[in-house]
Amino acid sequence: MLLKRIIPCLDTARGRVVKGTHFQQLRDQGDPVALARTYSDDGADELTFLDIDATPQGRATLVALVERTAHEVFIPLTVGGGIHDVDEIRILLRAGADKVSIQTAAVQRPELITEGARAFGSQCIVVAIDAKRVSGKGWMVFTHGGRIPAELDAVGWAIEAQRRGAGEILLTSIDADGTRAGYDLELTRAVVDAVQIPVIASGGAGHPKDLVAVLTEGKADAALAASIFHSGAFPIPQTKAYLADHGIPVRR
C-alpha cells in the first residue's frame, strides 16, 4: 500500500537554516545538511528546502547546498524558492534535487509548468499554491510569500497546474500557517477532490493529531511541517508512531 509521506521543510538563506531549530544532538543547528541528515536518519520520507534568499549570490549558495545534501542524504529532496525559469530548474536538478517547487513564477507565467514538465518530466515539477480564504470567493491564490493576491481561484489553479503537467501540488493555507492550530482541512480536501495528482498539505501543524486529520479528513497524500519538527516537540519517530497508532500507513 502507498504510504502517507511526512516531509520536514527547512527554510534556508545563504546556505543556512533560518528558522530556529532545537536539536541538541546537532553541533551546528544552522547547517541544513546536518539537519537534513538527522531528519533522514529519523525516518523523514522526503525533505523540502525553501530558499528565501532569491539574490544571485543566494542562488549559487543554494546550488552548492543542494550538492552537499545530495552527497549525504538518500531520500527525495524538493527545492523551492524564487525559481523562475527552466535553466534554474535544470541547475537545481543537476545539483541533486529530485523535484523543484515553483510558485510565484508559475502564476506569472503558467507556461513554466509546461516547459519544466516537458524538459524534465512531471515527476519533478511541484507547483506550490499559497491559498487564503476570501469571503464570498472561496480560496484565492496569493504570491510573493502570501502578500500579493493573484486573482486566481485556488482550486481552479490546482486543476490548471495539473493540466499543464505538474506532478504534485504543495498546498499551503495562509490562514493556518504559523497558527499551530491544525491544517485547513476543508481547503485541502477541496483541492484533493479536484485533482488526480498527489497533494502535499502544508501550514498549521502543531501536533501529530493535526497530521492525522489532514491525512484522513483532509485526504492529503503527504503532510509537510516545519516547526513541530524543528522545535523538537514532536520528533519524526514519535510523530510516525502516533500516526501508525491512528491507523495511518507510514514507513517505520
Binding site: 504510504l3 520520507d45 497524500d221
Partner: peptide
C-alpha cells in the same frame, strides 16, 4: 483506481 503517478513510499 488509485492516483497516478504512483508517487511515494510503498512496500
Amino acid at each position: 483506481q488509485k492516483k497516478l503517478p504512483h508517487v511515494g513510499w510503498n512496500t
